[in-house]
């Protein structure tokens, strides 16, 4: 591994090893995350449907309607799926590294692999959950016109990347200051209520909207809803801001991941 060896070749081998490691981790995580329950992955679906169902019920009791004539369950799916992608990726990244220290004894396994494996797993799982829930909504007679598949995909991928960037940061901070683990869920709780999961950010009063603008997740939720329905066209979404935010957090997160490696040891 001298510097004189073929750098491109080394990089290629490295990438091949990393792909293998991430795949192995994904297979393993599916087992450890859901393997012990009888219904396995179905729990992700049950959990999401339950939460959305509860909020649907509450909204229906309050007599609320989704804006722009959107069906309430579709509106809620549009809010909760990006949230799940975002939230689960951050939590998964943070707990994945500290909970898998034993694995890091294998020299080819780095914390970033654990994080990426979990991100890919959650990404594919919640995309499936979204498809299933939308299909269910369409089956029971709600309008689900996928107006703009490009926006839907962009919103999902960006929500995942946003979770990945912030997740890398949190995971690194968690290694350096274990208090992070207490603080992050508190911040996430605030985001749950302020990202427009079960209301439309666009319809919030102007002074609230101006504050919520800085929350990148709220843009992605609106973007997904724009993609799901032709009638729902929120002017709130400003992609350059979200893109910049995602790139910045990813860059910082990856740097911190590299930097925090030396804090990983058996004892702490």
């Amino acid at each position: 591994m001298h510097a004189s060896t073929n750098t491109a070749g080394t990089l290629l081998t490295g990438l091949r090893v990393q792909r293998r490691v991430i795949w192995a981790l994904m297979l393993r995580e599916t087992k450890t995350l859901f393997g012990k329950h009888k219904l396995g992955y179905l729990w992700a679906l049950i959990n999401a449907s339950f939460t959305i169902g509860i909020f649907w019920g509450i909204r229906a009791l309050a007599g609320a309607h989704a804006p722009h004539d959107m069906a309430m369950p579709v509106f809620l799916v549009g809010g909760f799926i990006p949230w799940y992608l975002f939230n689960e990726t951050i939590t998964g990244a943070m707990n994945g590294v500290s909970g898998n220290r034993a694995l890091l004894a294998y020299p080819q396994v780095f914390s970033i692999d654990v994080i990426l494996a979990r991100t890919l797993l959650h990404g594919s799982m919640y995309s499936c959950v979204m498809v299933i829930l939308l299909t269910a909504a369409a089956t029971v007679g709600h309008k689900v016109p996928i107006h703009d598949p490009g926006s839907v995909l962009t919103a999902l991928v960006l929500a995942l990347l946003l979770g990945l960037g912030i997740g890398c940061c949190c995971s690194a901070f968690n290694l350096m200051w274990p208090t992070t683990r207490q603080l992050v869920p508190m911040v996430l709780r605030v985001m749950f209520f302020t990202s427009g999961l079960f209301f439309s950010v666009e319809q919030a009063p102007a002074y609230v909207r101006d504050i919520l603008f800085y929350n990148p997740l709220s843009h992605l939720i609106e973007l997904l809803r724009n993609g799901l329905s032709a009638g729902y066209q929120s002017q709130f979404v400003y992609l350059p801001y979200v893109g910049g935010f995602v790139l910045t957090t990813l860059a910082i997160g990856l740097l911190l991941e590299r930097y925090s490696r030396k804090y990983i040891n058996e004892d702490s």
Binding site: K31, T32, G35, L104, A105
Partner: peptide
């Protein structure tokens, strides 16, 4: 002793 095994697997 332990190796990097996952206990629940």
């Amino acid at each position: 002793f332990s190796g990097g095994f996952h206990g629940s697997l």
